[in-house]
Design a protein around this nucleic acid. Structure first.
Lengths: 213, 213, 213, 213
DNA sequence: GATGAATGAGTGTTCATTCAT
DNA sequence: CATGAATGAACACTCATTCAT
């Protein structure tokens, strides 16, 4: 182990530190929320000094933003995988399964919302946040459009808006404190989504569920 | 003025103080958000000392909770008025108009979400919050049910869940920082809602007039 | 003593706290200089919490500024007393004696200079500092003018400038680290002053007794 | 380029690095003052790492001290040139011109004073500072003596003291934040100096012309 | 009931310096 | 010799809350 450590180049070592800090931030934010995640706590959780944190990030906000970016990347990849390369019906099934896991995403939703709240208050931060958010919305929009297409449907609205709506719904629901007996957020989301799809008019290209590529 | 004051009974005077503090809290929260609304600021805005605030509320959280209660009450009343005593089509129209004003509700959405976030972190607060939230969801659920009924439709889900979904969607959208050029949140909400209604199967009891389209 | 404490009204108590904080600040600044006088240290020296300090002053700078104001007031009073109500020759003597004590003023000179340095860097602070400085210069200028008059001399320059020059000289000298064997700053100042007076042309109005040499 | 570099011996290269760091330090100090000149900023400005700075200097203070030494050397050379090899009257003229440029010397005065302040607080630094200061005072003292002699005057005091007084006056004035409308520091210095010279008694050895007002 | 001075634990951030690479 | 990531102690300042008046 010690030997393994010694073999790290400077760049590798730094990347490792960055990653560890982000991991620690993830954990602390999950525990205490954004506002409750102090730089002190994050550094401690990561096993570094506070200064080390400032050597790798220019402040608290950039850390959080990076966290969000990471999550969005993962999310987009997952959705991409669900929608891509298969017929629409199967996609819908898998989407339902995926949505069912969203319950465990409470922490991420909290982070996403807290950063949105912060963006409403700090113009400096808003600029950075908006960029990340906008990119993600555009990204998801394309996935949504593809999904509609694979089901032979025409989106009622700009796909980006639909995607944004789904994000809003998902985050909002994730946050709602509901008794375990109640339906999971995933089911509710699928109900909304199902209704939207059912209500969408068929696309001109007479694809229906047999389109391809 | 002085005389007018003197006529107040002790209870009335205290109620007035409470109300003033709540009003001030509303203003400060709108300005700075929940986390940015310090007790000092609220007291100052209200024209009282910090101590006075603690004489009327047991802390910062109860104030915020009361604020949320007030807002929920108002919201329920507005929705009640929209749905009650008229045919479904007209209701739908008025609901669209009302949803269009939600853009200006950013402050409330922020407060609602910040309190939800707090509830996720503080078990003590969660107890109180859940009570308020639950009551509101039940309340809205009844309104939703009534709405579906007036349109001759059968809800796909527990009305309480549908209501919760709409709240989540509304709050989530209100928070999203979108460029003015884009569609307002209201339109998006109505699209989701319209799809849900269109997708709902007619109720057995042919309650009201059939629906359009 | 305990009883004496209890008799303090709120205002008195606050004034006492303020005074204690200023006294503590004086001590800490003397020990460590302005930059080295941390709010923590001052609060500790005063026997209060840091928060107490912020209840009484809006920050570190205002404390220092108040300290400077106090000192300037005292200095002006001393000089006033020296110059006023006596013939010029006696004044000159007493001025020399007084200047001889300036060696012990190192701390004050350091404070004055550090604040001047700060004013050069912080525009916010500069505004406040300039006001204090300007007032003192004007004040001293009048005293200098009076002094010249009592000696039957005409100042070569705007008295305010002469005063400012003396202040600069005094502060600059106080700061110079000289071996104790050397002449005290006071003597040097008196040499400069003596030369200035000797070189000044007599005023037209034969005000007082003629001067020496 | 690479070849040019290669031609430097180790010593030359190091000397170059040192010089670049000092130049950078000069710039940063001018911009932000002594306290505001962080090692990081200096290293960055110089285009080196922080570590490089510590390879060439043993800390921040030695850099500053070296800066001061450089400045003092330049100052002494300038004064030497003014006084040496010409009659007293012309010297006085040129001295006045030179003093008029002191306004632009704010940065140096600030550095000099900040180092003096530091010397008052840190005994370790004081030792080094005193040495530099003492050497300069002696140096200037000789120049002052020469100046008096060239004017056929006898200094009232140890020339070293007179020189120190002028430095103190110059630094103190440079720091004073005065409105542009007021007289420049140079004029004030010349007034003081003129008075001193006028008041000095002629030297026995009838050195040069004995001018008067 | 109202006051607001005082508390004490907390915040994000900076910095001169060190040392493994 | 140069690097710059990491340190650790320090910094000014904020805040919800308490309690003697």
């Amino acid at each position: 182990m010690a030997t393994a450590r010694k073999r790290l180049t400077r760049d590798e070592s730094q990347a490792q530190t960055r990653e560890r800090i982000l991991l620690a931030a993830r954990a602390v934010v999950a525990r205490n929320g954004f506002a409750g995640a102090s730089v002190r706590d994050i550094a401690e959780e990561a096993g570094y000094s506070q200064g080390a944190l400032y050597s790798n990030f220019s402040g608290k906000e950039p850390i959080m933003l990076e966290l969000l970016r990471q999550h969005m990347r993962e999310e987009a990849e997952q959705l991409q995988a669900i929608v891509k390369g298969s017929d629409g019906a199967a996609s819908l099934d898998r989407l339902g399964t995926w949505a069912g896991t969203l319950n465990s995403e409470v922490d991420w939703s909290m982070l996403a919302l807290e950063l949105q709240l912060l963006a409403h208050r700090s113009p400096t931060f808003a600029a950075d946040y908006d960029e990340v958010h906008e990119a993600h919305a555009k990204n998801l929009g394309q996935i949504v459009a593809e999904f509609y297409r694979s089901l032979g449907r025409e989106p009622q609205l700009d796909p980006r808006e639909l995607a944004a709506g789904c994000m809003a719904l998902a985050h909002g629901l994730a946050l709602q404190r509901r008794k375990d007996s109640e339906a999971p957020a995933g089911r509710l989301i699928m109900t909304f989504l199902g209704a939207l799809l059912a209500d969408a008019k068929p696309s001109e290209s007479p694809g229906s569920e047999d389109r391809e590529t």
